[in-house]
Simulated assay, not measured.
Amino acid sequence: MKISELSARSGVALPTVKYYLREGLLMPGEPTSATGARYDGDHIRRLGLIRALSGAGLTIPRIRAVLRLIEATEYPEFETFGRAIAQLPPYVDVAPDAEFPRAKKVLEFLGQVYEPRYVAVAHLEQALIGLEDAGLTLSETRLRAYGDHIRAIAEAEIELMPTASTEEAIRYAVLGTAMYEPVLTALRRLAHQDLAAAKHSDNAECGQTLNEEN
């Protein structure tokens, strides 16, 4: 297909398609003349991924980093996904020799792997420091409840991860993290609301029963 048809079928404006080509986000088409090229379904899929990453709030440099990871072969799968997730906010600068004692202690308690190069370890360390600064603690009871239930969510997500290609897997990991985390936060708050409402209803019924007995 010509670039005009690529634009029409992908829903991406022609100037934007040309911009992605110039920036190297979209791979070149097969040359058909000095000024023309042919594009195919791979280009439509790549444009869809670029649009999705942009919609998740990633800047052009970070989108480029994710796309490069799709083509990369020098990293183990674990590190590839970690580097892709690192393109999502919140952003942290992690020194190669950085250590995260609070996060390490938590992960050891949960029996999970501690890999300081994985950006979420730095995120956890910052969150734990924030708790300390606020005068709050993370009890073993709360930590165990969090760890067990979040692991169950993670197991379900990993089970659903596509395995046909690295591109699909990274798309799932990055977009899934960006788009589903707000859903999890909202569901948690709504569960709080529902439990509080049920407790209030139980207390009200108990009070009414006591009044009737009196």
Rank of each mutant, 00 (worst) to 15 (best):
Ser4Thr: 04
Ser4Trp: 05
Leu6Met: 06
Ser7Leu: 06
Val12Gln: 11
Pro15Phe: 04
Lys18Gly: 03
Glu23Ile: 00
Gly24His: 03
Gly29Cys: 01
Gly29Glu: 03
Glu30Pro: 00
Pro31Met: 01
Ser33Phe: 07
Ala34Asp: 00
Thr35Asp: 06
Gly36Arg: 10
Arg38Leu: 04
His43Trp: 02
Leu49Gln: 04
Leu53Ser: 07
Gly55Thr: 07
Gly57Leu: 04
Leu69Thr: 04
Ala72Asn: 13
Ala72Glu: 14
Ala72Gln: 12
Thr73Gly: 14
Thr73Arg: 15
Pro76Tyr: 14
Pro76Cys: 14
Glu79Met: 10
Thr80Pro: 08
Thr80Asp: 12
Ala86Trp: 02
Pro89Leu: 04
Pro90Asn: 03
Asp93Gly: 02
Ala95Cys: 09
Pro96Ile: 05
Glu99Gln: 11
Phe100Ser: 06
Pro101Lys: 06
Arg102Lys: 14
Ala103Cys: 10
Lys104Tyr: 07
Lys104Pro: 00
Val106Trp: 07
Val106Pro: 00
Val106Asn: 03
Tyr114Gly: 07
Glu115Val: 03
Pro116Trp: 00
Pro116Gln: 05
Pro116Thr: 01
Arg117Val: 03
Arg117His: 12
Ala122Gly: 11
Leu128Asn: 05
Gly130Thr: 05
Leu143Met: 11
Leu143Phe: 09
Arg144Ile: 03
Ala145Pro: 08
Asp148Pro: 02
Asp148Lys: 14
Arg151Asn: 11
Ile153Trp: 15
Ile153Phe: 15
Ile153Val: 13
Ala154Met: 04
Glu157Met: 02
Met161Ile: 06
Ser165Tyr: 09
Glu167Cys: 11
Glu168Ile: 00
Arg171Thr: 05
Tyr172Thr: 00
Thr177Val: 05
Tyr180Thr: 10
Glu181Val: 07
Val183Lys: 06
Ala186Gln: 08
Arg188Phe: 09
Arg188Gln: 09
Arg189Lys: 14
Leu190His: 14
His192Leu: 14
His192Ile: 12
Gln193Ile: 01
Asp194Phe: 09
Ser201Lys: 12
Asp202Pro: 01
Asp202Arg: 14
Gly207Tyr: 02
Gln208His: 11
Thr209Pro: 00
Leu210Ala: 03
Asn211Asp: 07
Glu213Gly: 01
